[in-house]
Amino acid sequence: MIPAAFDYYRPKDVEGVIALLQEHGDDARVLAGGHSLIPMMKLRMAEVPHLIDLQDIAALKGITIDQDTITIGAMVSQHELINHDGLSAAAPILREAALQIADPQVRYMGTVGGNIANGDPGNDMPGLMQCLDAQINLLGPDGSRTVAARDYYEAAYMTDREDDEILISVVFTAPVGGFAYEKQKRKIGDYATAAAAVQIAKVDGKVASASIAMTNLSDVPVWSQGAADELAGSVCETATLKAAVAAMLGDIDPTEDNRGPVAFKRHVAGIILTRAITRAWDRA
C-alpha cells in the first residue's frame, strides 16, 4: 500500500510548525508517532500534501511533575509514559491504561498527543483525560489557549482544535484515591469494545468524589457525571453499582460494528464499569 505523494518537513520548533500550517492550510497535517495517520494515508483515506513531522521539537517532549500538577508533552510516547516512575506513582491509572493500548512496537511510536488529538472514538487516552479532568494546551497563530478535555471532543475525528493549531501538552492535578482502567477487547492489542476509566476518592469509609469516563461507546468519549453522582456518599454496594451502571447506560450511544451489536456493547459496558468501580473502590 503506497500513500499519495507529499512534501515532508521536520521543523525544529513550534513556530516553524505553525508557519507551515498557516502557509498550507487544509493541505498540511502534523505527524507524531504516525500509528493512526500513516495507516490512513496508506489506505488513501487521508491525503496530506504537506506532512510536518514533530519528532525534533524538544518543547513537545517530557513529563513534569510539580507538586501535584502533572504536565505531559504531546510527543511523549506511550512507552515513555509507562516507564516513567514518577508518573506511575503520581497517576497510576495512566500506566494501567497505556499498557492496554496496542502492542510494544506501537507503544514505542504512538504518542500521548497523537492519541488525544486523533479523535478516533476507539482511542483510549481521550476518555482517560476526561476522567482526570485534564486541560489541553493548544498553540496557534494567535497564541495559546486551554480547553478542558471534557469539552474537546465534538464528533468522530472532530475536535475543538483548529486546523492551524497544534496540541502542546496536557495538564492535570494528580488524582487521589483508587483508580482502575478496565478494557474489553477482542484480542490483545485491539481497540476497546468498551472501556472504563474510574477514579474514586474515599473519606471516612465513603466515596467522597468519583469520576467516570467511557471509551468507544459513542462517537466521542463519554464522561458520565450521572454515574459518578450515584457513587457519591456510598460504600459502592451492589445497589449503588447498579444505579451507576444505569446512569452510564443513559449517557452512552454505541453503534453496531464488527465489535458487536448495540445490545451486546451495552451489556459489556455495564460489566466493564462494574469491574472498574469495584477495583477502584478496593484500591481507594
Binding site: G34, H35, I38, P39, L51, H79, Q105, V106, Y108, M109
Partner: peptide, 9 residues
C-alpha cells in the same frame, strides 16, 4: 526502539 517498519516513512 522496536518499530514496525511498514508504518514508518
Amino acid at each position: 526502539k522496536s518499530v514496525k517498519s511498514c508504518t514508518m516513512f
